[in-house]
Amino acid sequence: MKEFDIIVCGATGYTGQLACEHLARSYGSELRWAMAGRDMAKLRSIQARFEVPSHVQLIEVDITDAAAAASLAERARTILSTAGPFANVGEPLVAACAHNGTDYVDVSGDAVWIRKMLDRYQEVAAGSGARLIFTCGFDSVPSDLGVFFLQELARERFGAPAKTVKGRIRRLVGGLSGGTLASGRASIQAAGADPKIPQLLANPFALVPGFDGPAQPVGNAPVFDPDVKSWVAPFILAGMNAKSVHLSNALLGWSYGKDFTYDEMIMLPGAEDADSAREAADANIWSNVVRALQIDLKPGEGPSEAELAAGSFEMIFVGRTASGQEISTTVTGEGDPYALTPRIVAECAVCLTQDGTTATGGVWTAAAALGEPLRRRLEQRAGMSFSVA
């Protein structure tokens, strides 16, 4: 038996602290877990601030050191990583987990880095039995699990999956963090230096190597959507979320169909025509990447406690089967996305260690590997709900 069920890496960062708070409040002494970070003084401060039980071990470590990362992986059943930017510091932990048969979850939303990890460690993890699950935060679990939930209902109701699904963000109250902005700026710099990166980012099937799927809705400009009776605009997380949804479809044996299409956009309340929709989209940080990246936040900074509590989101999913039968579902969350992300990734880690999964070693998504058990946990412990609209 390994020493710990879960080790939280990046525990002194903005998201890592909140993940530790969630584990402490929700599970207390139910889990054997530890907090890992670069600064022991900060670890002790976080332990005191969030009243983390004294049995939770504090581990001072540099996760960019391959030997140190391997030591962590040897001691835990699951590594939960919030330490980014992942493109700069994340690979040693992924490699260590893949080689040691240790499960891994993180909050990365960097499709380029995830594809590199898939290419380098899929076969290694398949051999060791490690389940590697990326994007276990606000991107991309609400979208990924939201589509999974809709498809389960569609098969139950109609005997067939939805051939097309739209994801529409009806409400999103929340801010951004310095860590996310740093990762976004690093991705843009990388894209400018490598012409292959923009192609990968534009490909909705980038995480399904060798699959050239059907044309997908573009979603790159405001349009009126009659299904939700609202103008909608591009959503800055849509690209990553769609890649996760399509990877889930592949991992689930194409249970949504090889001709499945998905797109995701944000609704613009109050927009009455194309001009007002463009103005609203330009002013929205969740729609305008340039505006979002102009926000001055340093890594470790993010929404205040009051802002975390005041935030929320609501997504609508509209699916249609090949024969035209329609189903609509809703996914909601209480709290800012940066309050939800640490809860979601923590529940992914707990689900892996406590609920079991038929997933074998390799790269997975949260929906494909954890599915219904994770959905129940998120409703019971993370302030989320999944319902028929």
Rank of each mutant, 00 (worst) to 15 (best):
E74L: 12
A96D: 01
L93Y: 05
A87L: 15
A96C: 05
M117E: 07
H99V: 12
I133E: 08
S81W: 01
L80Y: 00
S81M: 06
A130Q: 12
G109T: 05
G127V: 13
D103L: 02
Y104S: 00
W113C: 08
I114A: 11
V124I: 11
Y104F: 07
Q122M: 07
R77V: 04
P85W: 12
V94L: 11
R77N: 04
V107A: 14
I133N: 07
V107D: 14
G127M: 12
A98C: 05
R75L: 01
L132R: 10
D103Y: 05
A76M: 01
R77L: 04
E123S: 13
A87V: 15
V89M: 09
P85E: 14
G127Q: 13
G101N: 00
L132K: 08
S108N: 14
F86D: 06
L93M: 13
V112F: 12
A69F: 00
Q122E: 15
S128K: 04
R120F: 14
V112D: 11
A73N: 03
L80H: 01
S108I: 05
L118C: 10
A87Y: 13
R115S: 04
V124C: 09
L118V: 13
A76K: 00
I133T: 10
G84F: 08
S128T: 12
A111I: 08
S81Y: 02
M117Y: 05
D106Q: 05
G84I: 09
V105R: 02
L80A: 02
A96R: 01
N88T: 14
S81A: 10
E74G: 10
A96K: 02
T82P: 09
A83Q: 07
A76H: 00
R120S: 15
S71Q: 11
G129S: 04
G127E: 11
A125F: 08
D106I: 03
Y121F: 15
A69E: 00
A96M: 03
G127F: 13
E74Y: 04
G84T: 10
I79N: 00
V105K: 02
V89K: 06
I79S: 00
V105S: 01
Y121C: 07
M117W: 05
G101T: 01
L72K: 00
L118H: 12
R120A: 15
F134A: 14
G84A: 10
N100W: 04
Y104K: 03
K116R: 15
A83V: 07
V124G: 06
V107G: 12
V89C: 11
N88I: 13
G84E: 10
A125E: 06
R131I: 06
S128P: 12
E123F: 06
P85M: 09
R115D: 05
V112R: 07
L132S: 05
R75H: 05
T102P: 03
D119W: 08
I114T: 13
T102F: 04
A76I: 01
R75I: 01
I79E: 00
T82K: 11
A83Y: 04
M117A: 11
A69V: 02
L132Y: 12
A111V: 09
N100Y: 06
A126G: 15
A125Y: 06
A73Y: 01
A130V: 09
P92H: 13
R75A: 06
A126K: 11
A69D: 00
T102H: 03
D106H: 07
G101D: 00
V105T: 04
A95N: 05
Y121L: 12
E91K: 11
D119M: 10
A125L: 07
S81L: 02
A83F: 03
A130T: 12
L118D: 09
A87H: 15
